[in-house]
């Protein structure tokens, strides 16, 4: 991967993080392709295959992945329309989870850039630390990894898909009212 491309991707992700932290959600939508898939599966707490804490009875019943598959339940499974409606909701003046609004800080790190499935796409891995504080003393830590497909549309990078995996299994925050 060319250095120039890596730098471009980094700058794109940092700018996106700033736009989210500044609550410019309509501008953020512009950074997503129209066919975007925005997905936050569930993380489960399972024994690994070689665990000696159990002896398995039926090997075909083993869940090998602790991350839910795409036909299972997810924390978010969104397209551009549903993301737009989430942002419409914030504009109603009655979205109580965000009224008063969260103050968020997205720290994006560990960025890796690889070739994508097609010429105009890149596969990008990153980690995030999203700190949310709200009202008087509320605070939440959302930490996890992202796997993005970035696509070049009219010369500009856009998010075509994003898989967000939180590290918590029981979400310790009372809700998910922000974007990642």
């Amino acid at each position: 991967m060319r250095d120039e491309t890596i730098r471009e991707v980094e700058q794109f992700l940092y700018r996106e993080a700033r736009i989210l932290d500044n609550r410019r959600f309509r501008d953020w939508l512009e950074l997503l392709t129209d066919d975007v898939h925005y997905w936050m599966p569930i993380r489960s707490n399972l024994y690994p295959v070689n665990s000696k804490a159990i002896s398995v009875l039926d090997g075909s019943r083993l869940e090998e992945s602790e991350v839910s598959s795409d036909h299972d339940l997810a924390l978010m499974d969104e397209d551009k329309d549903s993301l737009t409606r989430r942002i419409d909701r914030l504009d109603t003046g009655m979205a109580w989870a965000e009224d008063p609004p969260s103050r968020t800080r997205h720290i994006i790190t560990n960025i890796e850039v690889e070739a994508g499935d097609s010429q105009d796409e890149l596969r990008v891995y990153s980690n995030f630390f999203m700190y949310r504080t709200r009202a008087e003393t509320e605070q939440d830590f959302y930490i996890g990894s992202r796997e993005d497909v970035l696509r070049r549309v009219n010369g500009q990078l856009r998010v075509a898909s994003r898989k967000i995996v939180l590290d918590q299994t029981v979400l310790l925050a009372k809700n998910l009212s922000n974007f990642f």
């Binding site: 024994y47 159990i54 002896s55 398995v56 869940e63």
Partner: peptide, 11 residues
């Protein structure tokens, strides 16, 4: 300590 799975026995 796991939330679900399959087991003949638990140790």
């Amino acid at each position: 300590r796991a939330e679900s799975g399959n087991a003949a026995s638990f140790i």
